[in-house]
Design a protein around this nucleic acid. Sequence first.
DNA 1: TATTTGACCAAGA
DNA 2: ATCTTGGCCAAAT
Length: 106
Amino acid sequence: MSKNFFDKCYNLISKIPKGKVTTYKEVATALNSKGYRAVGNAMNKNPNAPIVPCHRVVASTGKIGGYAFGTKKKIELLRKEGIKIEEGRIQDLKKYLVSSKELKRR
DNA sequence: TATTTGACCAAGA
DNA sequence: ATCTTGGCCAAAT
């Protein structure tokens, strides 16, 4: 069960389907919080590497954000899932975005 | 207990 | 279209 902030983040992120993404902000919002940065911290500190698809969490500006194993690797993974990225930026973020509402339900 | 540190975000002197 | 700035929150120091 998830009781702390970090675990809640991991739970939500696990729901993101392949080929879609969400943002640090949406995750925070889904937790009724404004702790966007704290979400990033959760990813960085305890990536739960292969278990949680933390590469599907990007910045709300469309930029990729960081990744424990390197941003380049993150981009590759996203591309592999069919997401278009150019100049380190997601082309049509809206199209792939999973909203906080969608994260909340279930 | 207080301060520092981020895989952030929105607005714009 | 970029860069800077001030504000956000939870964990770690």
